[in-house]
Nucleic acid binder design. Structure first.
Lengths: 339, 339
DNA sequence: CTGAAAGCGCTTACAG
DNA sequence: CTGAAAGCGCTTACAG
């Protein structure tokens, strides 16, 4: 017998000598099928290498058991372990994860959201609260269930599993001030279309304002998240007439880039200038001196996001947002300024 | 008028006052539709937030314009930029990428392959040549077009866009020997089910054998790809009675872990022991001392893989595999042994 | 426990 | 340039 290359339920039915309805039940609700029938069917499925066609399935059942995650980038570990936990939690519920990335571009985000919905995602994980108006409209119009992670706001209309970037950056800045720094600079991510980046900037500014004179924010440089760019921004800051004694970085990648560049320039960290990061990814301990940074509870956040989304998808509950606390991890790159 | 939450072609047809056939044409072959009709339809689509249902589309057209990539892990940058290039190249052709990860587990790989095929992937990008027998059978039975990357073999039955791991590891080992090292150890990845890891081990062994006495491979430790594990393996090697003068690592993550641990243990790199890596990801220059490593042409590989897969999918050509060369990048972590 | 049949949202010859 | 209609692969009341 010739095996069909793309076997369908009908092919399985023929081989297993049963109706397509029974095959479907054997796959989806096995205990509604007699054990011997089930066995026969399972053998036929294996023999043919049958996999259900998700299109037909989605069409007929009006659900896909699939959710989508749209993250800014896969290029560094910022989202990797959170996404991993998200996926693991979904897998327990038998839900498949589809992943797409945006390159920090709102238009890309919109088209990736549409693409994932088109591919049958029942719900979405989105990063951050900043979103194009057309994207918001689309999400609202289509009443797409989604949870927003990596940030938190007390906004009852949106379901968050995240943390307060403003508060976290504020806290780190206060610590830098407490250690005696007064001339401070920041190397931040690009704030446009990125509320995490902009709230971290606002948090730093607010802390320095609240602390009052003589604390001063010399400069905030915005640059894409790459080590090289972080290094460039660092070199730039250190060439100005007034040099900071501490530089607060928008994330660990920028901070690591600054530290590497400092070494190349013969600038000692933290003796000549202190550096802090944000995220606490692996790179924070790879770099030398090791990085004082803000730890983000990625794994717990990812897991919670999955649970909230599943609850949204499978129950009528209206689950509440979850705010996670961040924590300052003290390592070598931050020390009091030379007196 | 009440807007449907999940608008269908029929809804668009009603609003735009046209048949579903015309709507479909306006979307897929716009120039077969009168300009004014097209405009009316586009407005209706926007108004309703319509996105085509990929299930219905795949069912009716028997293609999905989607390919899947299955990578071992998203947890570090080993595959990130290659995948990025792969995606960019696909995007040019209007093809969507679905990504899944396996955690270096053959069974997971099989189920993720099935899942992506189920979700309509027309073709696949796979990493490495090691694969479970059932996975091979499935790929063959279903005649699934795929390209294998991150490795290369002169096997005409499989389409590769990769490099020769054995040769690359052999080359690095020869360089280490050339610089005068004779007592060598290796910290490798887990070779089971991972041909890249095992071929790198074989390459190192072969080089040392070819070089002949007094060169000796003291020990090969296999460990999962994490900095901590790399550090543990390093500590272990340095506590043995016979200490190596050079440690060749299976990838940069392991090597970085070794270097970080060396610092903690007060062991000087490269004075006390040299370290080499594999991949040349960002971490190779973040770590201090910076890492001498094998550069893998990730971006070109990803782009080629996409082109080969598209060729497979859209033409009747039988494209040929592409072998990329790797290159040793000299940095600080490798130096001649103390004489 | 099993089967016949309707219908999910699309595309595409076919006809005009 | 446009429309009516068949059919893609599934699931699921309904009937037995």
């Amino acid at each position: 017998m010739k095996k069909p290359v793309n076997p369908t339920l009908e092919d399985v039915a023929r081989v297993a000598n049963a109706s397509t309805a029974t095959i479907s039940r054997a796959i989806n609700t096995p205990d509604k099928v007699a054990p011997e029938t089930r066995l026969r069917i399972l053998n036929a499925i294996r023999e043919l290498g049958y996999t259900p066609h998700s299109g037909g399935r989605a069409l007929a059942s009006n659900r896909s058991n699939t959710v989508g995650a749209i993250i800014p980038t896969m290029a560094n570990a910022m989202f990797a372990s959170g996404l991993q936990s998200f996926q693991e939690e979904l897998a327990i519920a038998g839900v498949t994860l589809l992943v797409a990335s945006t390159g920090y571009d709102g238009k890309h985000e919109f088209s990736q959201i549409q693409s994932l919905i088109t591919h049958g995602a029942d719900g979405l994980l989105l990063i951050g609260a900043a979103r194009l108006p057309e994207t918001r409209e689309f999400l609202a119009l289509r009443q797409i269930p989604y949870v927003v992670s990596w940030c938190y706001k007390p906004d009852p209309k949106i379901l968050f599993a995240g943390f307060d970037n403003h508060k976290a950056a504020y806290g780190m800045t206060m610590e830098v001030l407490r250690q005696g720094h007064r001339k401070i600079a920041m190397i931040a991510g690009i704030s446009e279309g990125n509320d995490r980046a902009s709230n971290r900037i606002k948090g730093v500014k607010q802390a320095i304002r609240d602390f009052g004179s003589p604390a001063k924010l010399l400069k905030v440089m915005q640059t894409p998240y790459s080590q090289t760019k972080g290094g460039d921004a660092f070199a730039n800051l250190m060439h100005k007439p007034t040099v900071p004694t501490a530089i607060i970085c928008g994330n660990d990648v920028l901070a690591a880039g600054a530290i590497v560049r400092a070494r190349q320039l013969g600038i000692a960290i933290p003796r000549d200038v202190s550096i802090t990061g944000f995220d606490d990814i692996d790179i924070a301990t790879t770099v030398y001196p090791t990085l004082t940074t803000v730890r983000v509870p990625q794994r717990r956040m990812g897991r919670s996001a999955a649970r909230l989304l599943l609850e949204l998808l499978t129950t009528d509950n209206k689950p509440a947002s979850i705010e996670f606390e961040t924590e300052i991890i003290f390592r070598e790159s931050l020390a009091p300024p030379p007196s």
